[in-house]
Design a protein around this nucleic acid. Structure first.
Lengths: 143, 143
DNA sequence: TTAAGTACTTGCAAATTGCAAGTGTAAATA
DNA sequence: TATTTACACTTGCAATTTGCAAGTACTTAA
């Protein structure tokens, strides 16, 4: 059971290039952080996303959730705990972004200073990337 | 032989999360398109990038080239053909973005309408992703 | 010597972002 | 039952960024 995103913000695609099309959806400083929170941290409410380390503004978060919803990357659901809460979930299209996020993590870990959790995750990836990705897929699909 | 980017635009990292750090570098609608042009289309001058399908503005292009240079993703060189031209190249850090771009292409091809070249590329990936990536790496490293 | 090519910079209007403060509904508490 | 708190937003406004048009400076071709 899910309900639709009301503000049908038309996503303009600048060309039929796959990279350009992808950037038209998540080409900004915040969208992939929301997806990261859902994918790796089990976050799934507006309040969860607001509390992330990078401190997204409330209006920007609302705009990004709306756009990601229109793009079919996330969906809105009733929260089992409370009517006041909204549950956001990654759709299959959103779950399919796992390999993209994983490669970004690997690249960034190689070339920047990152927190220890990321270093450990990257070490896991070097051992068994396919396994790690499969586990992530399975965990998100069943939820 | 390469020369440095003058405008030392400090790149602010919002956290030590690898995703966030990466987005601080290329989290916008244009940077990855420039990298795409260098990676897949053999483009390497300011004019080349300007002529891309998505029509980036001249000032935005200059700003992005400068930022990518400061981040160590690209480098500036003397052009062999003309003193009027500047040759941009991907650094090793930039070349290492191949898997990220490849995964974005694969995701976008699966979920959107894209041009036929992208569809063919995605078909190649399904056959032999490792081989395709290795070929890309080799092609960029030797140039 | 003049015109065209190349890589930018500058000025300004329009759009987007970021902060602070609200709003409306639901749940918890006194 | 009344009141406060939690939650998911929206609104207003200043500051920043974008996008377009025009200009600048150096190089090359005619």
């Amino acid at each position: 059971m899910y309900f639709c995103f009301v503000k049908e913000k038309k996503i303009i695609h600048r060309s039929d290039c796959p990279i350009s099309t992808a950037l038209d959806i998540f080409g900004d400083k915040w969208s992939l952080l929301v997806i990261r929170d859902m994918m790796f941290k089990g976050k799934n409410t507006y309040g969860d996303f607001l509390n992330s380390e990078e401190k997204i503004a409330t209006n920007i978060l609302a705009a990004r959730l709306s756009l990601l919803g229109c793009a079919g990357v996330i969906s809105k659901h009733k929260h089992p705990d409370s009517k006041a809460k909204v549950l956001y979930k990654l759709t299959e299209k959103g779950i399919d972004l796992i390999p993209v996020l994983v490669e970004i993590i690997e690249w960034s870990e190689k070339h920047h200073k990152v927190h220890s959790t990321a270093k450990e995750f990257a070490a896991q990836l070097r051992k068994d990337k396919k396994g790690v990705i499969r586990t992530l897929f399975d965990g998100l699909k069943k939820s």
